[in-house]
Design a protein around this nucleic acid. Structure first.
Lengths: 220, 220, 220, 220
DNA sequence: AATGAATGAGACTTCATTCAT
DNA sequence: TATGAATGAAGTCTCATTCAT
């Protein structure tokens, strides 16, 4: 489940030095612990145990616990963005906005649930880490949001989204639905494919301009 | 924003002893800190400061930090359930399933965003507190889930939900969308009403049986 | 040997709260350890042991190890200055400069050797503590030096000091002789009185204008 | 300012192996760091940096940090003694005791201030290193003291020193004045020559039998 | 001869918790 | 009922030291 982050930017060459691999092992371990215990609950001894070395060894690769956490958070959102961008870039030119959104939903869910402790760590902790650890993460996060933002704006512009909806709010709700999946999804009790399908279906018809039946307000 | 939990079970009688009020102040403070810093990041000294007393005073009201956290978590989900149940009970008999869902969406969002640090604390930390603090919370949580479960099942049974959808998954996605709102909603940048409206609209048309336009899978 | 520093500025009332006494005990212990082990060698556990409490208790009174050290250093030089100033103020008006120097020599030696670990700590460590701990200490230190400076300048102005001598250098040498006494003086092997007498004698005739016999340079 | 210690005993032959030179570089670096940071504050990584190699390399030349420190301390005092002895031996036979003292004062000051981090390290740390590192150093130190002791005793025997003075105490004070110079002397603000001259003048007339003007005690 | 990598001991510091008042 | 004072456990981090290369 843990996976090396592509943070180094290098092509996934298998010829990494032992040192690089150890550093990666620590980062992976940190992502894992972080995704489970949260920022404040992440102890270096746990990370070390998971990475199969002694805690002080971490300091050979990272200047401090905070730097380690910061890097995990950054990799999490950064990898996610790359993953999403790749998925969108792979679509044929002229793919209609809503179908692009479908692709994005799938990319987000698969990356989050299938691939990466980093994504989970990043998602779960973005609201809890101290401000000063967020400068890089915040920038990436904004960039990630902007991609989604454009998706919904395009859909709205093309009349593929109900005019009643506020694209920003829709984006918050949709991403929330996807993000939260990490909290409840149990691979043993349902396939990832089915989640993807359900999410896509709801989002597609959820945002599509009503066919006559405009969303009515609940009477209060 | 902080609010007293109705955990004591007593109707909101104004005749609370000073002792009861202090206890409540501590609990409120704990809910607030917990909702912001997370379970592991919550320090008794922070709670005490927020409650305007000294940390050791907390021990006069709660046996330990863990008990305090446990109680907040329990109150959070327990209040939420009561709130939701009240909202549903208030609906006229014969309200169609989908409209009941709309009411539930609104109740959940308003309780979470408007009323209660407890709800936020409970939502944010349910995945991070140690297992042994979750026995009461888990039971309430299951009960809460069951209410929603029934809502979606009823909708499905009445043909008001697309047969393509898996009610459990839909529930996860919908509740995720609602829960996550606490992470991004900024009261200064958008009314709660508009969030409620958008969420209801998406859920309503998102689950409704497609009028011809079945959700298509994204080609991969 | 340890002694309470007069840092509080309060008259030496014996009615100090228990808290104040504990704080003083810690400060005294720190002065002692510091004077023996040096700045870098001073461990909080040693201070705590000497003060008869547990190391973390120190944090109830001082924000950090550095603050504790800084305060000892400050008290050391600050007390010393007060002591010297008091001794000089006690001299009858019109006391000739050289006699004032004699009084200063005695005051410095007695304070250093008889009264205060603080003085020793301050003297021994002024060259070894990190710069950022020296702001207050440096100011006091400069003020202390200025007192001596005036003493020698006055002596020179009154013709009581050989014109061959550079007052600044003489000051350095004289204070060095006095400061270093803490390194070698063993109360068991010589009275403090005799050190005072010897130091005074050497300084008095050492700086007095030669009676014909000007200091000759050693032929090289 | 750093300088190779003659500890190896070999005359300054230019034919030192690279290994010997590296060892010397480490020793010099240690002397430097020790003279600035003190015994407890001296980190092997600092020494290594100053010697331009990695910390573990030190272990190729010295069994441990303590051994390294011990050797610096020993070299410091040992070089000093040799330097002083050489200076005294160079004096013409029959040089009067006081002039021998003048020569000693000059030798001590020049060695300390001009030549050697070792001397400074040795002087500054003799009171702070743990006992078990002092066996060799203590012996040399005693021998060094004995030289001075004889100088003052001779002066006293020849009537060149005031009978009021205690030779041991005078020695302590004089050496203190000289040792302490390292703490305050700034080559940029005064020539070494002037310090030597001032020190000699003070010591010469400071110890010389008073010409009528016996040192009076300060009235208290 | 020297270094990169890692470890164990021990330091400073935080924090939940206790206890006397 | 609440606090000031103190403690013990545990976490982060530093540093001397080791070891394979």
């Amino acid at each position: 489940m843990a996976r090396k982050s592509a943070a180094s930017g290098s092509p996934d060459s298998e010829v990494e030095s032992k040192s690089q691999r150890t550093r990666q092992r620590i980062l992976d371990a940190a992502a894992h612990v972080l995704s489970v215990k949260g920022s404040a609950g992440t102890r270096l001894s746990d990370v070390a145990e998971y990475a199969e070395l002694q805690a002080p060894a971490i300091y050979y690769y990272f200047p401090s616990r905070e730097d380690l956490i910061e890097e995990v958070m950054f990799c999490g959102i950064s990898d996610m963005r790359r993953h999403l961008q790749d998925a969108l870039d792979a679509l044929p030119a002229g793919t209609p906005p809503v179908d692009r959104i479908m692709a994005a939903v799938e990319a987000h869910l698969r990356h989050e649930l299938e691939l990466s402790d980093y994504a989970t760590a990043s998602i779960r902790n973005s609201g809890q880490i101290p401000e000063h650890l967020r400068s890089r993460e915040r920038k990436e996060s904004a960039a990630y949001g902007k991609i989604w933002h454009r998706l919904f704006d395009d859909a709205a512009a093309d009349g593929e989204m109900s005019a009643d909806l506020d694209p920003r709010i829709v984006q918050g709700l949709v991403l929330g639905a996807l993000n939260w999946a990490a909290e409840w999804w149990d691979p043993k009790r349902g396939s990832l494919d089915s989640i993807v399908a359900n999410a896509q279906a709801i989002v597609r018809s959820g945002i599509s301009p009503a066919d006559g039946a405009t969303a009515r307000r609940t009477p209060r």
